[in-house]
Simulated assay, not measured.
Amino acid sequence: MADYLKRRRGREGWFFQRSVPPDCRGVIGKATWIRKAGNSSTEAKRNAAMFLAETEQLIKAARGQQLTATQKLVSLIPERGLVPADIDAHDLVSSVSREPMYLDSEGSVNPRYEELHEVAKGVLDGTAQDLKTPKDLLTRATLLKSPAPATGFEWKRWLTKLMEHTGKQYIQQITRDDALSWRASELERCQPSTVRTRLRFLNGLFGVAVEEGWVQSNPFFELTKRVRGRAKKKEVVLLDQGDKDWAKLPQHHQLLWHLLRWTGSHASEAAGLRWEDIDLKEGVIHFKSHETRPLKNDFRIRTIPIHKNLMPILEAQEFGEGLIFPWAYNPKRARWLKECIGQTSSELARRQLETGLQHA
């Protein structure tokens, strides 16, 4: 997911910045939208949502996209005061769609017409809301939560799967029954612990929808409570034992272990280091964001001294360019150490590479 909030050199505050799609630039007349979003991060995130909705409308207009009948009805919400007083919901539906009221001569009700009729009634009585797509929810959640790339990937993945399972287009159409049905289908083919993780992603997304006033309740709230998995017995491993067993690791994992052991960094942080991030002359390691491994937040951008036990290990290395551990990155899922887990020679090493180690 794109990050639309930027800092600008020499300028105070945060700025909304978004590229105009190449096929729309001739109509819109620019290549990039840049606007002041606010002086604080909170203010900027709030205003960015409004700017994003506005630019989406400009893109839609530039591309001349055709609206569905539902979207046409929803587009009348801001102008419902201009709708003639003598028009009813059936007239409104017929003005945007040729959907028949009945499916046959016996009077079988057309479900699609009923759906449009409900939306039309909401437009007329002022209760209808602008329907939000999965893309709208993902964009808003990204602006508010600034997730790690792997989290953004999982959000999109499981929200897409949910919408495919239900056959619905809009976030407001998802019900508690839909959520229960999706959970049941996942439990039929996955381990309970896996299903719980997926439910948490969806619960978080729909929590954003509730906060934004798009839906009245979260259909995934507390759905993980009754999903029980097998308890895993975890053994405590002491650092002094790790100091004895690190040589059991494959050769190309050993330097990574030492970095984890003596920097106290997260596994993804150490695995994403580049040779230029290590300064032996100054005796420091710089943890920086870069295109392949953006750090989760600004607090993780830091410079730390090289531990006395780590210095001789680094001095013995033949420095190169770029990533120190390119094998540790899975570009398809924007995730680090995916290929490393499970290849180590002991459970101890696996735990250390997966979770990272703190200073002794």
Rank of each mutant, 00 (worst) to 15 (best):
P326E: 08
I324L: 07
E282N: 14
P22R: 13
A360H: 14
V123T: 03
C190F: 07
G272W: 03
Q172F: 02
L137Q: 00
A49Y: 01
D243N: 04
P21E: 13
T194K: 02
T42I: 06
K36G: 03
L124D: 06
A141N: 13
F15N: 03
G213K: 09
Q129K: 02
Q191E: 15
A128K: 01
G320C: 10
I306A: 02
T263W: 06
L137N: 00
I304P: 08
V20A: 13
T197M: 09
I285C: 09
I301T: 14
D125G: 11
R8N: 01
L314N: 13
I341P: 02
F153T: 12
F201G: 08
S40D: 01
H165R: 04
S217T: 05
E56R: 07
R200M: 14
K338I: 06
T55N: 08
G342R: 02
L162V: 06
R63L: 12
G322A: 04
G64A: 09
E154P: 00
K296L: 09
E276L: 06
Q57I: 08
L180M: 10
V236A: 15
D125S: 14
S97R: 05
L337W: 00
R112K: 15
I313T: 07
V109Q: 14
H290Y: 13
F220Y: 09
L162M: 06
S289N: 08
K225D: 15
T166L: 00
I304H: 08
G29H: 00
G122E: 09
L199R: 00
K36I: 02
R25S: 10
A360P: 10
F206K: 01
Q71T: 06
P84M: 05
R351P: 03
L159H: 13
R333P: 01
E318Y: 03
I304G: 12
E99K: 13
R11W: 10
S217I: 00
E315G: 12
L73H: 01
E54P: 02
D279E: 04
I278R: 12
K45V: 08
V27G: 07
K244Y: 10
R46Y: 06
G126V: 08
Q358G: 08
F201T: 15
I306Y: 04
T160P: 02
T224G: 05
L337E: 01
S108R: 13
D178E: 02
I304A: 11
R350P: 02
F153L: 11
L205E: 01
R333Q: 12
A89F: 06
E321A: 12
S75V: 09
W327F: 05
W327N: 05
P22G: 05
V208S: 13
F220P: 04
K225Y: 06
D125K: 15
R350W: 01
S97F: 00
L187N: 01
K156Y: 05
R35P: 02
G107E: 08
L144K: 13
T151M: 10
F51R: 01
S193W: 00
R333D: 03
I285P: 06
E276Q: 12
I77L: 12
I174K: 02
V210A: 10
D91P: 06
P305E: 07
Q172H: 05
C190G: 01
K121L: 12
A31F: 02
K233Y: 04
I278D: 11
R300K: 10
Q172N: 05
A270T: 10
L116D: 13
T32A: 08
K248A: 14
P22S: 11
V123P: 04
A85W: 07
D178H: 05
T224S: 05
T55F: 09
P149F: 10
T70Q: 04
R176F: 04
T292R: 14
I278C: 09
